[in-house]
Design a protein around this nucleic acid. Structure first.
Lengths: 83, 83
DNA sequence: TATGTTTATACGCAATGGCGCATATAGTAT
DNA sequence: ATACTATATGCGCCATTGCGTATAAACATA
């Protein structure tokens, strides 16, 4: 599982999909990392002002990690090596 | 080039290294994406409150992209397939 | 339809970002 | 040491977060 995000909105979508895959509600997730349901909601809807710390908290709860790489990873976009 | 970041501080380090590789100053970068030098500085030093939008702006200037993936990409951590 | 659950919004509040602008501090030379 | 460049900090300002709390709106599903 590997997804590129170029905007806060895309991050939100990724987070939401993942959360749903894990069959959690925003409330449950919020509890795990001490964030309000409302905060999760805003992140998922793509608020550009969301704080980095908030994102990391959420990624933790979802067992996801953030990777930075050069853009010229010439886009096997969705395919993505799965190992 | 692929780097995992688990904290705002690590993001900052990655950004700084990349900027230096590109031989740019914070001022120059700031101009490209309309951010103050001070703002870049804070991001690079790992301010957890930095906004998602700011991060994306900077990544754009550095020609980097952000990837979200499952944590269990069982750690070829530093090695990393190069492209 | 009606009930229950989940997500989006709202209010007031304290805290902080990012702005312009300016300056101090650090780093790199000569 | 001096001069120059680059980065970190500071101030006042306005905007927005995330908080607690509460409610509204959207989704299910009986």
């Amino acid at each position: 599982m590997t997804q590129i995000a170029r905007t806060p909105k895309q991050i939100g979508e990724i987070v939401r999909r993942r959360r749903q895959t894990l069959k959690q509600t925003q409330v449950q997730m919020g509890k795990q990392v001490r964030l309000r349901q409302a905060t999760i909601s805003k992140l998922e809807t793509g608020e550009p002002g969301t704080r980095l710390s908030t994102l990391f908290d959420v990624l933790t709860a979802l067992d996801l990690e953030l990777v930075i790489r050069s853009r010229s990873k010439s886009s096997s976009h969705d395919i993505e090596e799965n190992f």
